[in-house]
Amino acid sequence: MNNSDKITKYFLFAGSFLILIVAGGMVYSLVGGAIPAFHKFGWHFITSTNWNPTEGRESYGAMPFIAGTMITSVLALLISIPMAFSTSLFVSEYFRKTPVASVLSTLVDLLAGIPSIVYGLWGFYTLRPVIMHLGLSPQGFGVFTSGIILAIMIIPYATSLSNEIIVMVPNELKEAAYSLGATRMEVIFNVIVPNARSGIVASYILAFGRALGETMAVTMLIGNANKVPHSLFDTGNTMASVIANQFGEADGLKLSSLIAIGLLLFVITALVNTAGKFIIKKLS
């Protein structure tokens, strides 16, 4: 290898440092920024449900937001699974390679392109009145409304990978089941699902990871109440939405607490995504 080639190699190598620096810097800044909050409240910061910015009696706990994030995201996942699973079966099994399937999958892909704030507006002006009309909650805000919007938002993430995995289930296995008298539905549940299970699970985990960090749509719909929601129709706040909401007026201990929440959100999403990617890696 001559000199000019070596220089090129080092140049590429040096370029790859940036992402390391960014990632390292992110962890450093989040941890550094969160230290005052953890120093003041200790582990209690995570478990406390009290969020009180009144000067002199300042007290910050992340539990309402951890709970809000988890409840809305789990709800979103539960709502999206039947839709995502049906869409995958429609595209990759029942109507595989037909024009209707490609129309459907294009439309589902477009869902991923709609900006979060537009989902928020639609939720506010179209979905919220429906929730009010059904008498589910007086103002239409809350965990349930956010969960529905989040569910719609994560469907494309839940389907893209599972579509590919379902297509890959070998035809000969399906034929074996048909030859034994199974109906198509029985083939789906006894052959396709067991064989594609880990891929389907991985894609739902990654979709769940998306829901955890969604900010704008949730901020506009959850009602922004700094408490643990008591029911599905109660208002609340998520980790992402409390940062978006309260950041503007924040400094000192409050800013540190918001950064600490950001750190927790970072850790949770990183864990969830790593779990999903780990399953995918084991597949290939």
Binding site: P170, E175, A176
Partner: peptide, 9 residues
């Protein structure tokens, strides 16, 4: 069938 296809699961 042509190729052995026991259910792998």
């Amino acid at each position: 069938f042509q190729r052995p296809n026991p259910f792998p699961t």
